[in-house]
Design a protein around this nucleic acid. Structure first.
Lengths: 247, 247
DNA sequence: CGCCTGATTGATAAGTATCAAGGTCGGTGG
DNA sequence: CCACCGACCTTGATACTTATCAATCAGGCG
């Protein structure tokens, strides 16, 4: 029968495809800091609840204040996690990449505490709130990692506050650039506007600072049209004022 | 024998005194959010490791960067918990009162992450780092409370960041006043400088805003010399711009 | 080719910090 | 008891940082 001859390879292909996807999901979850220390089997258990979802550039994954029905992990692409201010500005708290969670530390509250929007083509893993919470309570060793994550994030936000009070815009932009470059490499695909949002300033001010840095040879000339290239990371690092003081 | 006749009451007195102090310590610890849900016996166990220490006004309890040898709970008085900026300014993250911990959320790191200084006569409970950590691991139910505390503090700091970007100084001062008054009542014994540090501004600017509020009848005229009296809490509340948006 | 987004530069204005100069009150020592 | 001193409060003038507004430019894409 013709149908049989046709169906057989298609089934194989589908099975292969499903296995591949499952492998990718597990791979991604294993890169989460939150799940380190867990066995592969544990992660496979969680992975079975995870759906792979694709977003195009500029799409909203979730918005501040909406019911937090899902827990997200970035599989591919860049996602900005931000909050809007009462005056319509935006502050980007983090740019999440592969293996980063979007809302792991949002433990309390039934609603998303921030918004998440894609900066390019993005694939995420999406896990139902219930499944995620059940997984957390089953694997109590995560609690320790969660506390560590929360604690370090809290410190980071406190530092951000101190910098907002103590440092001028130029310094904040430099720190944003440095932090982003350390995480994603020296070729950043961010618009000036996105960078400005990271530092809590305006596009124009960000551009003016970048121009100055370009004159100093720290930013490459090939910048522009949605990208920033850092050509002298060492010099950039020298410009960062450490507020740690004693080291 | 004379000695006997004398010693007896003194022993009684000392015993009574020790019991009283122990009771005070337990009472204080029971007011800690971190320890709610624990039995009185559990808390008594922790209390036995706690020493009551007195500080006079303006004293430093611990300083950012020093080895974090102790865990502190405020028994009486006000303590500001702050960080200095690289430019010499100060940002007060919280004013701690009775039952508040000074460094409970500083889980990671071996050094104090902030500084703590008394705002008036203060009594604290001081528990050795080891004893505190042992207690935490023994009573794993605290982990849940700790996560909740960390999470809510993280949210609060993120909000602070957003307000620093989005709101002007006047609004930040109003929010600081409102928050302080809700916690400590409408008679605040804070200098203008301390209030300014809470809002991340300068003394002069804080004074100018307070003058305006005084004209509007929100701040009492009896203010000045180390105190602020809020005479119209409702009107103050009306001035607070909620950035929650939907409620 | 024309539109649209993002980058860029300049001019201007608003918000705050900074600097300066008293003023007030409470405590302390002669 | 009084005078002084120091900590805190207050107000004004000025400067600086950065946002805002406006205009132009460059490149990608339908």
């Amino acid at each position: 029968m013709r149908t049989n001859l046709r169906e057989k390879p298609r089934e194989d292909f589908q099975k292969y495809n499903a296995e591949l996807q499952e492998k990718m999901k597990v791979d991604t979850l294993r890169q989460c800091r939150l799940f380190r220390g867990l066995s592969v089997d544990d992660i496979k258990g969680l992975s079975s609840h995870a759906a792979m979802v694709h977003y195009k550039k500029g799409a909203s994954i979730f918005e501040e204040g909406n019911p937090a029905d899902f827990f997200y992990v970035v599989q591919d692409g860049l996602v900005k996690v931000y909050k809007g201010t009462s005056t319509g500005k935006i502050l980007t708290f983090t740019v999440a990449g592969r293996g980063d969670t979007l809302n792991a530390t949002a433990v309390s509250g039934d609603n998303y505490y921030m918004s998440a929007q894609t900066l390019n083509e993005v694939t995420v893993l999406k896990i139902g709130r219930k499944s995620y919470q059940a997984f957390l309570t089953e694997h109590s060793s995560i609690a320790i990692e969660l506390i560590a994550m929360l604690s370090s994030r809290l410190n980071r936000e406190c530092d951000r506050v101190v910098r907002l009070i103590g440092e001028d815009v130029e310094q904040r932009l430099i720190i944003s650039l440095f932090t982003l470059a350390r995480k994603f490499g020296t070729t950043l695909s961010l618009t000036r506007e996105e960078l400005a949002n990271c530092a809590g300033t305006t596009t124009e001010t960000a551009i003016r600072v970048l121009s100055r840095l370009k004159k100093q040879g720290i930013i490459g000339c090939a910048a522009g049209r949605g990208g920033i290239i850092i050509s002298d990371m060492a010099k950039l690092h020298d410009l960062v004022v450490e507020d740690e003081g004693w080291i």
